[in-house]
Design a protein around this nucleic acid. Sequence first.
DNA 1: CGAATTTGACCAGCGC
DNA 2: GCGCTGGTCAAATTCG
Length: 270
Amino acid sequence: MEDVLGNSSFLANSFPLQSIFDFSSEGDKYFPLGFMELMGSHDFASPPLFDISQQVPPPFKIESPDAFNLPATPNSSSVSSASSEAVNDEPVKVDDQQKTKKQLKPKKTNQKRQREPRFAFMTKSEVDHLEDGYRWRKYGQKAVKNSTFPRSYYRCTSTSCNVKKRVERSFTDPSIVVTTYEDQHNHPSPLMSRPSLGDSHLNSGISAGAAFGMPMQRAQSHFYHHQQLPLSSTLSPLNFGHNGSIVGQSSFKDHGLLQDIIPSHMLKDE
DNA sequence: CGAATTTGACCAGCGC
DNA sequence: GCGCTGGTCAAATTCG
């Protein structure tokens, strides 16, 4: 198993990157939606929120495959990526699914699993479940192949919202949490609706995180060292260090996870 | 007591 | 066709 570390061919094959980002096809269908649209946060995000301490830069919108080869803005220490599959017109309604399954266990027979638009974040954090402004209910946990850490499955607790997310730790760097969001929220963040959270900067931080659906840590854990890492080609050693941290670079070079996530052809462009 | 989490079982997709 | 793996369900348990 050790020999696979740093072996790009293994990484490319073993990590389901394509299933997460789907960079590889469909021409100009790349990311037809902006980040906030995809995260369902269109109604409550405002540009000033992007300023929060440079930890949560504006979402970058990828409009073409070439975008991956462009240098990121110097402030990009945290970027998201989206799959191009936001065009599932009619995702199967979870409610219907659950209804049919409640009868017994002849389940999942009448519909195929459909892939949803997904975003993945890497966050350097000591806590698994990062606060992102929404409330989540854990509905499963699975041991993952090639990882000693289990993957947790969460679902948005809002009844009409079927956003899901997966949380797992990088097995090469346990301090990094990989959070994958699936689908988009159709409701405001419950945390944002709270009129006062005390510190205004704190409040804005949570708001921004909620707006993007990005994992944020709660007030009481703000002292934890954490940093979000982009899961896109804009992750380059050039993009790190502006805030004194080279977490991204370190994991990029020394560990396999980001290489897992970044298609190999991107790495070649380095 | 209701909500959230845990966990074993089940199912579907995929590769061989 | 079979086995492996990821994803989900749902009963049991824990928590607030």
